[in-house]
Simulated scan of single mutants.
Amino acid sequence: MNYNQLGNSGLRISEVSFGCMSLTSSEQKTAIDLLYKALDRGINFFDTADLYEKGENEVMVGKAFKGMRDKVIIATKVGNQWRPDGSGWGWNPTKSYILQAVEESLRRLQTDYIDLYQLHGGTIEDPIDETIEAFELLKQQGKIRAYGISSIRPNVIREYVNRAAIVSVMMQYSLLDRRPEETVLDLLHEHNISVLARGSLAQGLLAGKPAKPYLNYSLEEVDKAAAAVQAVAGANRKPAEVAVRFALHHPAVSSAVLGIRTEEQLQDALLAASTAPLPNSEVEHLKAVLPANKYEQHR
């Protein structure tokens, strides 16, 4: 397993990491076994959120890693507040809410600190300075080691680059979602801010699932991209390996965060981790298959 620096945080994270969102408390034993197997094989970065299963996802991650806190790097997220009646959630990036929510996440995770605390979204209308104040205070208090945001909005990302000491941005990036390439990836790389790439398999469309329209691409275009990935994979690699390696090719990307729920998905993630980086010729061949899409909103 290769490990990369997470921005300027001093944390070194596995370049393929475990997205915990798909794990369910109804299958807790299976889920915790998968977490242990991932850790045993070198994955050290585990991403969850207070939103997932109304906090039960954090509870499960906390239970799994109790007593081995020094062996794992745990990331969670904040900003989505469940309504009292449980009917859904609203957006709350205020300082007071973040300071309240972190205590609940620490309790559920059974830990004294969170390695990476991420704002789970964000809009340009948010009280951004207030949000930053909350994260900076939590760093001073030792309750978090570093902070970042999870966002695909270029205008929001630019504000945090300019105003905050973020170490990472989690965003969707794949052969079928090259929107970050226009400006965001280079901007973050220039400022030593790591990208945590999610969605690198494009809902499995680049890993063998039947083609369907995706973002602004038609079914035929998705099929064309998947066929190109398959051709590059050849006989010795799986399409999932190539798709993940494509997401990792840009130097800004420190880790591909893969949603893992089954043993097969874990094995695919580990295969991708052990696969050599794509040579530039293969990257350029894949890029030439379809025109890159661009962000149409929040520019």
Rank of each mutant, 00 (worst) to 15 (best):
M1L: 13
N2P: 08
N4D: 11
Q5R: 15
G7L: 08
G7V: 09
S9V: 06
S9I: 10
G10T: 05
G10F: 06
L11W: 07
L11D: 05
I13S: 12
S14K: 12
M21S: 14
M21D: 11
S25F: 13
E27P: 05
Q28N: 13
A31C: 08
D33T: 14
Y36P: 03
Y36E: 15
K37F: 10
R41H: 15
G42S: 06
L51N: 10
N57G: 06
V59F: 12
G62C: 07
G62N: 07
G62F: 05
G62R: 04
F65M: 04
G67I: 10
I74N: 05
A75N: 07
T76R: 03
N80V: 11
W82Q: 11
D85C: 07
W89G: 07
G90L: 14
G90K: 13
W91H: 14
N92A: 08
K95G: 09
S96M: 09
S96W: 05
Y97R: 08
Y97P: 04
L99Y: 05
S105W: 04
R108V: 07
D112Q: 15
Y113C: 14
D115Q: 10
D115F: 10
D115W: 04
L116M: 10
L119N: 09
H120L: 13
G122L: 06
I124C: 05
I124R: 12
E125A: 14
T131E: 11
T131A: 12
E133D: 15
E133G: 07
E133H: 09
L137Y: 11
Q140V: 11
Q141S: 11
G142T: 07
R145V: 10
Y147I: 07
Y147D: 12
Y147R: 11
S151W: 03
S151C: 13
I152V: 14
N155I: 13
E159M: 13
R163N: 08
R163I: 08
A164Q: 06
A165V: 00
V167N: 09
S168W: 07
S168R: 10
V169R: 04
L175C: 03
D177P: 01
R178C: 02
P180T: 01
E181M: 02
V184Y: 00
D186P: 02
D186A: 10
D186N: 06
D186Y: 02
L188A: 00
H189Y: 07
H191K: 02
V195D: 01
V195L: 00
G199M: 01
G199L: 00
S200C: 03
S200W: 00
A207K: 00
K209H: 02
A211E: 01
A211C: 01
K212Y: 03
N216Q: 15
Y217W: 02
E221D: 00
V222A: 00
K224D: 01
A228W: 02
A228D: 02
A235S: 15
A235N: 15
P239W: 02
V242W: 04
V242L: 04
A243M: 03
F246T: 04
H250Q: 08
P251K: 04
P251E: 03
S254F: 06
V257T: 04
L258T: 08
L258C: 05
G259E: 04
G259P: 04
G259H: 03
I260E: 03
R261E: 13
E263T: 14
Q265M: 11
Q267T: 14
A269G: 06
L270W: 05
L278P: 03
N280M: 13
V283Q: 10
E284P: 06
K287P: 09
P291M: 12
P291H: 10
K294M: 12
H298K: 13
